[in-house]
């Protein structure tokens, strides 16, 4: 199998999906990296469940303020234009359809766009956090993840075996080998990572992939 992309390249590809002026929520993990790779000249406003809109870079060592964090508990720098609010208002923004794009990680995504990202059954307990609200409320949900799990099993499946976060909520899947669109007709392979063929991507994908007529190579 050809080489896979690293987490930064996945994040870089996702960053291209954020439109100018969008209000964006980035989940924990690979999604957090996306803000570093926004194309030059593009402005988006980040929302976090911790109760802040319009945050900028992470704080460096010695700059931490315990009252200025994102949803992952990372410390933020004060940024002109940022706004604070309580959690009911923060989630009114989410459910009310005011968040244009949510980028989340996933354990599994189904061919219908079902998302499973809050609980591994073996652990017996999980964290939902803001994921179910974002799955239900964000206008567009993009999943950023590795194509297979640590055991090498496909994460893009016919039906999620893990408890789901939201049914039919995922619009686009960006992985370390492909970009896949989810539509009522199923999954369409839009892009492959450099060196990968559609057949090789299908071999590590449980769900069926239709290949786009204008299949492209992922670019950064």
């Amino acid at each position: 199998m050809p080489e896979r992309l690293d987490r930064e390249l996945i994040a870089m590809r996702v960053a291209q999906e954020l439109p100018e002026g969008a209000y964006v929520n980035l989940g924990i993990g690979i999604p957090t990296l996306v803000s570093q790779f926004l194309p030059p000249g593009r402005t988006v406003v980040y929302h976090s469940e911790s109760g802040v809109l319009g945050y900028g870079p992470l704080a460096g060592q010695g700059q931490e303020d315990i009252d200025l964090i994102n949803a992952g508990g990372q410390f933020l720098l004060p940024t002109p234009g940022m706004a604070f609010f309580n959690s009911a208002e923060g989630f009114a923004m989410v459910r009310g359809g005011h968040i244009d794009v949510a980028v989340m990680g996933a354990f599994q995504v189904s061919e219908k766009g079902d998302l499973a990202n809050w609980m591994l059954p073996a652990r017996g307990v999980g964290n939902i956090g803001g994921a179910m609200d974002l799955a239900a409320g964000a206008r567009r949900v993009i999943v950023a993840m590795e194509h297979t799990d640590p055991q090498g099993k496909p994460k893009i499946v016919r039906r999620c075996a893990y408890p789901i976060t939201g049914p039919g909520c995922v619009s686009l899947i960006v992985t370390d080998v492909a970009v896949i669109e989810v539509s009522p007709a199923g999954l369409t392979l839009l892009e492959v990572a450099p060196g990968w063929s559609p057949r090789e991507v299908q071999e590590i994908t449980e769900a069926h992939l239709s290949v786009a007529r204008d299949l492209r190579e992922m670019g950064f």
Partner: peptide, 28 residues
């Protein structure tokens, strides 16, 4: 879910006994 938790607390303080939300529909 976090937004549901927040709204349940808001509702409690505001005298609203219950509410419907799309969050969590179709999930455990």
């Amino acid at each position: 879910p976090q937004g549901t938790l927040a709204e349940r607390i808001r509702a409690g303080g505001a005298g609203i006994p219950a509410f419907y939300t799309p969050t969590g529909a179709g999930t455990p």
